[in-house]
Amino acid sequence: MMQVSALVAMAVAMGVYQGVNPSMGWLYATARGLENRSVKSLIDGGVKFAWGHYLGMNVVLLPMAWLLALTRLHPMLLMPWIGATLMVYGLLKLRSPGHPRLLNRVSPLRVSRWSFVMALTHCGSPLMMISPLLGLVMVSQAGAPAATNLATTLQGYTLLALGISAAMALPQLLISLAIAMAVYSRLGLKALTRYWLNFDLGWSIIFILMGAMAVGM
């Protein structure tokens, strides 16, 4: 149970970090609220952004979960490869931190679609969530009877994938909405000129560190 709590806490912590990141929703939500002078527009923008991100994660995590269920492959065999991929991705982001050109082809007005593509091509949240998913699958395999049928395994792994995605997306949504509301109602746009951090740099470093941990396992 302790291991499960640690894996879920890892996903939640990443969601909190992404929620604080301006490019992950709250800046857009604030802009929508100020543009329409409406809290409803602010919340709508934040929810649509988080929904696109959640879908982007599951496009990667669900097939991974199904592959593990169908092959009965032990997740530990994938850890070194996932870890190496995380480190390479982090290094590439350090070298080229800008948005990929593919995002330019998606209209910013289509918020959920833009967030979906951003999750897959720029921030890498789906890739980041593979390690916690593999950990949860390992815990599930250790506690499941050897004779567990395929349908039950598929259902269980599907719920794990959906759950670990939600464990990141919900904190991201709540934190981004809280910050957007604070800027909208209290701090104002002047706060954006006073307080600004490079969250993408920290995100890249987290990729490298998590990759090293996965390889070390």
Rank of each mutant, 00 (worst) to 15 (best):
V47P: 02
M2H: 09
L192I: 14
S115R: 01
L173A: 03
P63Y: 07
Y157R: 02
V139G: 13
G15S: 07
Y195F: 11
L103C: 05
R32D: 04
Q18C: 13
V117F: 00
M210C: 14
L61Y: 07
P75G: 08
M24G: 04
P63D: 06
L86A: 09
G46Q: 03
L86F: 11
L159S: 03
Y184E: 03
L62W: 11
M64A: 09
M2C: 11
R95P: 06
S107W: 04
R113C: 01
G45E: 02
S107Y: 04
L42F: 00
V139Y: 11
W51Q: 10
W81T: 14
G143P: 05
L92M: 15
A11H: 10
G83R: 03
N58G: 05
L187S: 03
M129P: 06
G45N: 00
N149E: 13
S131T: 15
L197F: 10
G143T: 07
R105E: 04
L42N: 00
C123V: 14
A144M: 13
M10S: 15
S131Q: 10
Q172E: 14
R186T: 10
A69G: 10
W114A: 00
K93I: 06
Y17W: 14
W114Y: 14
N198T: 14
T71E: 08
A169W: 01
V8P: 10
K190D: 14
S125E: 08
M1Q: 12
Q155P: 07
S112R: 02
S140H: 10
M210N: 13
